[in-house]
């Protein structure tokens, strides 16, 4: 049952468990247990206040014409307009552009960084001196633990015009022509986000690779395989589940996080050039960027993400966490 000695032991097992475990479901669902409910209560209160109610609320607001002009915090006074916001949304030519922006952003960042680079770095760090690999991995964590505003400030200086920008200084040194941030805006949006996102995959892949039994690797060595062959025929096949996990988890995370884009480009330059879906919801409702905050319309954008989010979360958590779910407590209530 709890036989996994390492993190990845559990992790690698998870996927398999989803497929093979159809363990006996306990018929008795237990009894109302006051102690347990007391333990859960504070968490439940917060979940209700900040997840359950808001989810219902966002569905409702998306069907009202709430704007800053007729703003009210009282639900009863909001004007219900049915699906009008969604009709507008589907006919909004900018919404279409933003949708494709989002798809581009998610897929490209994921492919290059969150999966590609993280896999690359994990393969490298697991084939070098342990101490050094630890240093590299730790350094990769820096973007994730640096405050977004500080991190973005660094990048803004990185791509600043000459003579201030670091990149342009380097380009100047080798005789290249200076570039501007707005010229390569998507490139930087992807890099800036990717450099944060890749540490997630890196940690998971590294743990998974390190958990591959030494016997298997030794057997492969004895068989005379080269390093590339070992990667191709042993490591990568064993990384199937972690890979799937990282992809599904990071899709959701890229789809819904927008803080870095907000800070780096705020959706610009130009009309919606780097605007993504989640940022639009924020802009419409919570930022004065457009002068008039459109709560209802912004909520319609948010609802789309909420629906996708709930579906994806439910789906992949079912797939990946199944075994955790079926583990039954081994102390019973009398």
């Amino acid at each position: 049952m709890h036989c996994a000695p390492t993190a990845t032991g559990t992790f690698l097992g998870m996927g398999m468990a989803a497929v093979t475990t159809t363990q006996s479901k306990r018929t008795s669902s237990g009894r109302p247990n006051l102690t347990a409910y007391l333990f859960l209560m504070p968490a439940v209160v917060l979940v209700v206040l900040f997840f359950l109610i808001p989810t219902i609320l966002v569905l409702y607001i998306s069907m009202t014409n709430l704007t800053s002009a007729n703003f009210t915090a009282d639900i009863a006074q909001m004007e219900f307009i049915g699906f009008a916001n969604f009709t507008t949304l589907f006919n909004d030519q900018f919404a279409q552009k933003i949708l494709f922006n989002t798809l581009f952003y998610v897929l490209v960042t994921m492919a290059i960084f969150n999966v590609g680079a993280s896999l690359f770095v994990s393969l490298l760090t697991t084939h070098i001196n342990r101490r050094a690999s630890f240093v590299f991995r730790a350094l990769w964590l820096l973007p994730r633990i640096t405050a977004g505003t500080v991190y973005i400030m660094m990048w803004r200086r990185m791509i600043a015009d000459p003579p201030f920008g670091i990149l342009n200084q380097a380009l100047g040194a080798v005789g290249g022509t200076p570039i501007t941030g707005s010229e390569y805006v998507w490139t930087f949006v992807v890099i800036v986000n990717g450099m944060i996102g890749m540490s997630f995959g890196m940690v998971i892949f590294t743990a998974a690779i390190e958990s591959i039994s030494k016997d298997i690797m030794n057997a492969a060595l004895v068989d005379g395989s080269t390093m590339l062959q070992r990667i191709r025929y042993i490591i990568l096949p064993l990384l199937r589940w972690p890979l799937l996990f990282v992809i599904s988890y990071q899709t959701l995370s890229l789809l819904t996080s927008y803080e870095q884009i907000l800070l780096l480009t705020n959706g610009g330059p130009g009309l919606y050039q780097t605007e993504v879906w989640a940022l639009t919801a924020y802009h419409r409702a919570l930022s004065n960027y457009f002068g008039n905050a459109q709560w209802g319309y912004g909520s319609a954008f948010a609802v789309v993400l909420v629906v996708i989010g709930v579906l994806l979360a439910a789906l992949y958590m079912r797939v990946f966490r199944f075994r955790d779910l079926v583990a039954e407590p081994k102390i019973e209530t009398l």
């Binding site: 979940v47 900040f50 997840f51 109610i53 808001p54 989810t55 609320l57 966002v58 607001i61 988890y249 959701l252 995370s253 789809l255 819904t256 996080s257 927008y258 803080e259 989640a278 919801a281 924020y282 409702a285 919570l286 709560w295 912004g298 909520s299 948010a302 993400l305 909420v306 989010g309 709930v310 994806l312 979360a313 439910a314 992949y316 958590m317 079912r318 966490r321 779910l325």
Partner: peptide, 14 residues
Amino acid sequence: LILHGFPAVTLLIP
């Protein structure tokens, strides 16, 4: 389980 993967930032408006 679902909450763990739930994109909470999308709920800022409500």
